[in-house]
Design a protein around this nucleic acid. Sequence first.
DNA 1: TAGACTAGTTCGCAGTACCAACAACCGTCA
DNA 2: TGACGGTTGTTGGTACTGCGAACTAGTCTA
Lengths: 153, 153
Amino acid sequence: MAAEIGSMEIELAAALVRLSHLVQHVFADASRQHELTPQQAQLLCQLAGGPVGMGELSRLLHLEKSSLTGLVDRVEQRGLVIRIRDAHDRRACQISLTGKGSELAHECHDDVTSRLDKLAGELPSTDRTLLAGAIGQLLTEHGQPVTVSSSGR
Amino acid sequence: MAAEIGSMEIELAAALVRLSHLVQHVFADASRQHELTPQQAQLLCQLAGGPVGMGELSRLLHLEKSSLTGLVDRVEQRGLVIRIRDAHDRRACQISLTGKGSELAHECHDDVTSRLDKLAGELPSTDRTLLAGAIGQLLTEHGQPVTVSSSGR
DNA sequence: TAGACTAGTTCGCAGTACCAACAACCGTCA
DNA sequence: TGACGGTTGTTGGTACTGCGAACTAGTCTA
């Protein structure tokens, strides 16, 4: 067993795991509300910023390209996404949201956001600020770009 | 009217989602290191506190009982777990770790913990404390016991 | 003892994810 | 021009996940 002194660390690791499960659960619920699997919702949200190629998408979602092919196939069959053949490189293609897909992506994103905000709303605002800051730092430390999607607005 | 003030909220929600993905990724990697799927690892870790019945397990893992049957089947076939028929209620059974399973569960748990601690170690310790506190509060607000699964009931 | 209820299982289905092998295409170098 | 190595995305095969409906078997209650 680890020393008692480390208990704070142990709690933090456990807390992170539990928090992760909670967030996943919220995300899955919201996705399902829109008749999407979590993976499909994540894909759509990722595309909200504009078309992306399969290779980059694979990196962004931490998926093998072969896994991605199937995922894209399924959402394409639902008419939420289209493959656009690249004009300069005929091997490549860009995945782009259709109107319907874009609508769903935003609905789903807003839904997740509002659920999480509601959940976090139970915390005092100072804690929320600290939490966001600490998480942001964790993410940047780990090579994840913490893009601020709405900075302009 | 979520005015400008709400921008912090938006960031927090996005940060939570990203953090969640990061933790899931760490968890999946650690599990794989021990030749377990994340779900199997989660099951084993849940059982580390002692045998649990299918029904309660289903609640703890947020899984339908039918999904759980298969999951338990697979780890049982690997000899990591056994079904123990309940003496008082012959319908019920308790799922219990075998020696091998218990070993794996602890290895995996420690691995995840150390990876997450390492990840969090890049934060100043005051931030870690705040983070753990805030997450703990979030979890308790949401009905999740923050204890490390040792409680019977 | 009949009927209601509960614990787990089985079955069918869709989706996820990996790996290995592959076709098509690009850029380069001879 | 054309062969070559590297890239892009796809296919095929396998294992796992997760749900809902229908089911078996056992328990409890009236």
